Computed example of a mutant assay.
Amino acid sequence: MATRKLDRRMFMGLAAAGAVTVTGLGGFLALEGRVGSRLTGRSFINLFETTGGRFVGYRRNHAKALAVSGRFESNGAGAEVSSATVFAKGVHPVVGRFSVGGANPHQPDTGSGQALALEFSLPGGQQWRTAMAAAPVFMAPTPEMFYGLLSARLSGDKDRAAAFIRDNPAAAAAQKLIEAAPKASSFAEATYNSLNTFIAVGKDGARTPVRWQVIPDGNNAGTPAKIGPNWMFEALAKAIRGGELRYRLLLQPGVPGQDPTHDPTLPWPADRPQIDVGTLVLGHAIVQEQERIRDTNFDPTVLPNGIEISDDPILTARAAIYAESFRRRARETPAPVEPFGQDA
């Protein structure tokens, strides 16, 4: 029976990776594991395991997480730029996970590094998966530079890390933007960004580069008491246990030919208008949902009709890395679900 469960988990994850083949090259790279001229998804996952440890059954990054379930209340405004059904006026089921970066699911909370991954279930069996972070930009423009930066940072050698930043201006500029951005000490009050650029395809075939944000909508969580190693997750679990968290989903259309689509370290001009496309409501996930969310590969290139990947090379790298992480844990005994008091 255990073998059948693991096989089913692997099938689901590979099916999710296969779903991106409709976007073309991104799906091919995800399945083949190639992310650059010399790198593969295995290269990154090996690095995570070597430097951060190997924790059986867990994701190789963003291992520490809390599952949530809810809905997206679309107001229809997103149909201005995309034909995706998620932006038609209506309500769509959503599941997701709040997490922090790192391979260790038992690492103590620091009040930073928040991330949010979501899966929208749409008509006709389509899905939209997005993996966002509480950072304004990504840390490197190419898979090769991303790998070099991770290698330097995770080595524990401060001089090596400083030298890498000094020798790679793009990574240095991204680091400055990330460090200067406003910080939230809770999941409830953080703003989550798509990091990468995508292409919204309208009903008339018009193609518009877009980025998106999930911003808190009246989540008055207060300052969490920093008691114990899981204080940030326990504060999130308490907030969910007492009700629901609300966020606004904002699309930011770019100007074709002016706003960069290929480099996720470059911010777009601050005066680019945003479209408020609806309300995201997240709350308690029952145990069965928590287990399914644990087993889901939140590959950001799993997209519905009306949204496509851009020429950003980091997108295909993320797909390959996520797929390799899934393949490894799917062969292992599933990790226990940690509710952090959500079910208390």
Rank of each mutant, 00 (worst) to 15 (best):
V56T: 13
P136L: 12
G278M: 00
P93C: 11
A103F: 14
V81T: 01
T110V: 14
L195Y: 08
V137L: 09
E332P: 08
V255N: 11
R327P: 02
L195H: 03
D263H: 13
T110P: 02
P108Y: 00
V210H: 05
H106T: 11
Q288G: 07
L303W: 02
P123V: 04
S82Q: 09
E324Q: 15
T40F: 01
A285R: 09
V214C: 10
A133G: 15
Y247S: 00
L118N: 12
P123R: 11
A225W: 10
G278F: 04
R328V: 10
N193E: 11
F48S: 01
R60V: 01
A184S: 14
A134C: 13
R331L: 13
K183N: 00
G218Y: 03
A140R: 00
D7K: 14
N193D: 13
A270R: 14
F28W: 01
L116G: 03
P224T: 02
A140S: 13
A161M: 11
G18A: 11
Y192K: 00
Y147F: 15
A239L: 09
A206Q: 14
F164I: 03
I227L: 14
E179G: 04
Y58M: 01
Y322W: 03
A184R: 04
A135N: 09
I227V: 14
T208A: 10
Y147E: 06
Q288F: 10
D271L: 07
E308T: 06
P269K: 13
Y58A: 05
N220L: 09
A131V: 02
E324D: 14
L122M: 02
Y192I: 00
H284K: 14
F138V: 02
S186Y: 04
I307Q: 04
R34F: 09
A330D: 00
D343K: 11
G41P: 03
N75L: 04
I309K: 06
K5D: 11
K89V: 14
I307A: 04
F28V: 10
L315R: 08
A131T: 06
Q114D: 09
T85I: 01
F138N: 06
M145W: 06
F48T: 13
N104H: 14
A152E: 04
P143F: 09
A188L: 03
R294K: 13
N297V: 07
P334V: 10
D311V: 12
R292Q: 11
P209Y: 09
F187L: 05
A16D: 05
G70P: 00
G27P: 01
E119D: 13
A200H: 08
T142W: 02
M132Y: 07
I321K: 15
P123D: 07
L266V: 15
G257C: 04
N104T: 07
V81L: 07
V86H: 01
Y322Q: 11
G202I: 09
V337F: 02
A317M: 15
E73L: 12
E308D: 12
E291M: 10
A17C: 03
R241D: 05
G96C: 14
D343T: 11
A172Y: 05
M132A: 10
Q126P: 01
P229H: 12
T40E: 05
I321Q: 08
P300K: 01
P313F: 06
W128F: 15
L25Q: 08
I215G: 13
A171Q: 13
I240R: 02
V86D: 03
S310W: 00
L122D: 00
K183F: 01
G278K: 00
S83I: 08
G52H: 02
G18D: 01
P143S: 15
Q342K: 06
A103H: 06
R38I: 05
